[in-house]
């Protein structure tokens, strides 16, 4: 590899029911856009944003579900080698909250053990329609040892914070990992800085 323009590269993966605003969160963060009434995302695999944290350049590669969550048919390979998962639900939709345990099972099954998971309650701009109390979600997140944050992709509330907090957490873990660089370290997908060249990536 020649000149790198970043110090860290992390793969962040979004999951959660259809319609909870996953794509809007990514859009808002990476492009500052909020496209109203948008449909599925065509032709876009992941989005990139490079942020600077304490003088270090962190490149975030943010992957969306490509609509496969609609019929609960996400490919396992989607979860592979993710450094962080953003599990999203819609605070105005009880059903999207009730599905969280199902999503957690899927995470447990396919994501690597060290993946950082954050629970996000989106659409706080629709406070008057709220169906899931903040306390309830916080309790749930705590019980599952996840971070919790409420956002509005529309108003851009906490969106920046969500990704920056995640980036900080991932850097912290990456440094930790480097320190106790044990014999379990060279597992692909479990290392914290993913490099596409670690294996013989053919792309």
């Amino acid at each position: 590899m020649s000149m790198e323009d970043y110090d860290y590269l992390f793969k962040i993966v979004l999951i959660g029911n259809a319609g909870v605003g996953k794509t809007c969160l990514v859009r808002r963060f990476t492009q500052g856009l909020f496209p109203p009434g948008q449909g599925a995302t065509i032709g876009v695999d992941f989005m990139i944003k490079t942020v600077e944290i304490k003088g270090e350049k962190v490149k975030l590669q943010i992957w969306d579900t490509a609509g496969q969550e609609r019929f609960r048919s996400i490919t396992q390979s989607y979860y592979r080698s993710a450094n962080a998962l953003i599990l999203t639900y819609d605070i105005t939709c009880e059903d999207s909250f009730r599905c969280l345990p199902e999503w957690l099972r899927e995470i447990e099954q396919y994501a690597n053990n060290q993946v950082v998971t954050i629970l996000v309650g989106n659409k706080i701009d629709l406070a008057e329609k709220r169906e899931v109390l903040r306390q309830r979600a916080e309790d749930f997140a705590e019980a599952q040892s996840m971070l919790y944050l409420e956002t509005s992709a529309k108003e851009s509330d906490n969106v920046e914070k969500l990704f920056l907090d995640l980036a900080c957490e991932l850097i912290r873990e990456a440094k930790q990992n480097k320190l106790d660089n044990s014999d379990t370290a060279p597992m692909p997908g479990e290392g914290k800085t993913i490099s596409y060249l670690s294996c013989c990536n053919i792309n």
């Binding site: 995302t41 065509i42 032709g43 695999d45 609509g67 496969q68 490919t75």
Partner: peptide
Amino acid sequence: CRMSAVFGGIY
């Protein structure tokens, strides 16, 4: 399949 989904395939 992921590639198909990214380009609008329904799974």
